[in-house]
Design a protein around this nucleic acid. Structure first.
Ligand code: MN
Ligand code: MN
Ligand code: MN
Ligand code: MN
Lengths: 218, 218
DNA sequence: ATATAAATTTAGGCAAACCTAAAAAATAAT
DNA sequence: ATTATTTTTTAGGTTTGCCTAAATTTATAT
């Protein structure tokens, strides 16, 4: 069954909130993410429920069924493949791509996704470091930890950042990208801010909210 | 002002029916093309009219305004650029691309269109030979005539075919593509069918309805 | 010129996806 | 254990884009 763009956006949002362990997601959280109102969410949950894409019991939040998860993974796959395309082929910067990918992810054509994947030579991560699910919806788990949890004096490689334009532009400005080598010079125990040495060159002080949106591999 | 997908489809349909000289287009023709009913068309015409995209007078058909023409040309530009992309980069065949391009043409992002155009190195014709409007909406007119009008014994190069999947698959089967050299061996004056020599190799008999959907340059 | 047919518009409804305001249920605080 | 707060659902509307059926206008045929 083919979903509407709106239904797809709900599935994707539920997927992102549920995390790997498929926790129940609340009506309010969905509404907040989608910029709609709780009443609208309730309506849509009923619809998705009759389509067996979610498990919904009044007042109890929702979880994705296997079928719903599969659909959500396909949308995420498309989103990330298109983001990779925009950066690698069309020379967009990583902060310009999300909105366009939000549109492109809803293009309905199985063959298009697979041809795009081949053309891009089966990328495994999008420009922000997020893993791209394969055709079957399998995601490669890379071990990664938040920069904020890295102990002083340790070195680490950036492998994932949050896909938020303002953050991304800021990171570009201070010279952080996927693959950057960071050394944690100092951690301020009061406000959790950090002094970083980036690629062995520049020292930059970052706040905890920045450090919270960067993940690294040691 | 940003148009809905539906509004864009109406503009594009009016554009295609109006031809170069921007003739008035009838309600019924629009309905037939879009697979909707005349009543729905009338409704939409009122809406497009208040947006000054068309000139509409009850019972008199519609014409595009300059603004409407500009919008239509942009949609056509996007459709054809995406078709070119699908064939040249993703290795689709020319009969598989129209439906996907119908979706892609509605992606809203000015920068995307221009980056795509650059990436493709500013193609001037789509895979069916249709001209791609430039950024300003200018279309290069190539002189071209219908194969059905070519006189016996003349040779000609295929430069445009109608974008209809069944036709395209048939042409592929008999070995006709853009750039093929055709020699008109015989014209049957009874049913307008033709015997063609394709690229100096194969002789193929085609009906008038096929010949009507192929254009050539002498 | 008048009757018939075809094209177009109007009137009244429907489904999707949103909204606000009010009611109901669940949670938290005294 | 009540009361207050928060969360969620229900009820009733709106907009967009579609529909059918009926009315109106235009075109065609006798
Ligand atoms: Mn994104
Ligand atoms: Mn991303
Ligand atoms: Mn096409
Ligand atoms: Mn085409």
């Amino acid at each position: 069954m083919i979903q509407t763009t709106s239904e797809e956006n709900y599935l994707k949002t539920i997927f992102h909130h549920a995390g790997i362990s498929n926790n129940a997601v609340s009506t309010n959280d969905i509404a907040a993410s989608l910029g709609t109102k709780a009443a609208s969410v309730t309506e849509m949950l009923k619809k998705l429920s009759t389509q067996k894409l979610i498990r919904y019991k009044k007042y109890n939040g929702v979880t994705l069924t296997d079928s719903g998860t599969k659909q959500a993974l396909l949308i995420v796959r498309k989103h990330r493949l298109w983001e990779y395309f925009l950066v690698e082929k069309l020379k967009f910067s990583w902060d310009e791509i999300h909105e366009v990918a939000e549109q492109l992810e809803h293009i309905q054509s199985e063959v298009l996704v697979e041809r795009l994947d081949s053309f891009l030579e089966h990328p495994r991560f999008d420009p922000h470091g997020d893993p791209i699910p394969d055709k079957k919806g399998v995601i490669k788990k890379s071990d990664s930890q938040k920069l904020i949890d890295v102990t002083e004096k340790k070195e680490a490689i950036v492998n994932l950042v949050t896909d938020q334009p303002e953050l991304l532009r800021y990171l570009s400005k201070i010279g952080i990208s996927i693959g950057s080598k960071l050394k944690v010079m100092e951690k301020n125990s009061f406000d959790q801010s950090m002094l970083l040495l980036i690629n062995g060159k520049n020292k930059v002080q970052i706040s905890s909210s920045i450090a919270n949106n960067i993940s690294v591999q040691l």
